[in-house]
Amino acid sequence: MNVTINRLAPLMLGAILLAGCAKPPAEQIDAAEKALKEAQMSGAATYTAQEYAKLEASLTAMKKEVTDQDGKFALFRDYGKAEQLAASAKADGERVKADAVKKKEEAKAGALQAQQVAQEAVKSAVELVAGAPVGKDRAALEAIKNDVEALKASLNQIQLAIDKEDYPAAQTQAKAIHDKGQAVSAELQNALAKVGKGKPSAHKKK
């Protein structure tokens, strides 16, 4: 009997020591943190703000679990739950990143489309101004020309917002420019309709 215990004791000690050597799942934690970072870089805080906040909270919970286990006596440490939380956070991070990328692309596409529509509205107004008659009859169009020039200049603001990846702002600016461009074109067409009924004038000093 004594012989048996003597033989088993080192084995049991070894098993206990082995269990006591439980370490935090560093690789999984790094992977989860990397997933969070990548989600953040993809614009998740803007485009999937709710999911991103929950992802951050998951990582905080995971870190707390690791800290809790670290604080225990070595033999009682169990990082199984932390590992599970890390794996879950990693998967969530990848999903949040994918969602953010998708939503960002949709916002970008929306902004680019709105930019194109605004550019067309301004182009149309520019062409109407260019086609306005020269001479005295052009006088009533002077103020509208200023408006069209201002609209042309404002197109840069859309591009600036797109460059900054502020797609909601770009889209809103583009819509405002489009609406104003159409209003100016309508005003211009009215003015041209009036002018069209008069004779063209000779150029004179004034």
Partner: peptide, 29 residues
Amino acid sequence: RIVLGGKPVQTDLLVKQARSFYDQHDYQR
């Protein structure tokens, strides 16, 4: 109007944006 050059249009665009952001419930913008 002509005294103000392009300023009325710039202002009009800002007012339109303020309304648009409001309609989108983006009150801060």
